[in-house]
């Protein structure tokens, strides 16, 4: 009986919280995400174009472009600017590869105080680790399916 009353009180309170909670500024977030994410990709496209001017194909240029963007992301993270990009840009800053770089560099910097091995070394992959684990696993499963269905992956 007391339990039932409790459940009801909890449910009523959570309803109240839900109805009063200040809403996220979704429209603003989405607009910022569009322009920040678009701008980062645009920079990437210019870098890729630069490599292509030096005789690379679009496909060949993808890898060095990624490396340059990761370097830029790391530099901005080190200078303490990238968290501001994401604060306004949201997923516009997180989703591009520069955000992946931020996710590796930020914990590495921060856990310097715990030493080079157990701090930097271990924490480098705190956020990037799940992305690699599931990215690699998903790619394996997709590749395997294609291999089984078509004989080539």
């Amino acid at each position: 009986m007391a339990d039932q009353e409790n459940t009801q009180r909890v449910r009523a309170y959570q309803e109240l919280v839900k109805s009063r909670r200040p809403s996220k500024p979704i429209l603003k977030n989405v607009i910022y995400a569009f322009f920040v994410g678009g701008a980062i990709c645009e920079v990437g496209q210019w870098i890729q174009w630069g490599f292509m001017q030096n005789g690379m194909t679009a496909k060949e240029a993808t890898s060095p472009t990624t490396v340059v963007l990761i370097g830029l992301g790391a530099l901005l993270t080190g200078l303490g600017w990238y968290d501001k990009v994401v604060k306004h840009g949201g997923m516009g800053g997180t989703l591009p590869i520069t955000g992946f770089s931020n996710a590796m560099v930020a914990p590495a910097m921060e856990f310097r105080s715990e030493g080079l091995v157990l701090g930097v070394g271990a924490k480098l992959f705190t956020v990037a680790g799940p992305v690699l684990v599931y990215g690699l696993s998903a790619a394996f499963v997709v590749g395997l399916c294609r291999y089984l269905l078509t004989g080539v992956a």
Binding site: R21, P22, D83, N102, A106, M109
Partner: peptide
Amino acid sequence: ERQFRFPIELGYQRTPT
């Protein structure tokens, strides 16, 4: 922040609450 959430320089958006 370091203990409860994320590294300082990791970008993320704070919610209004």
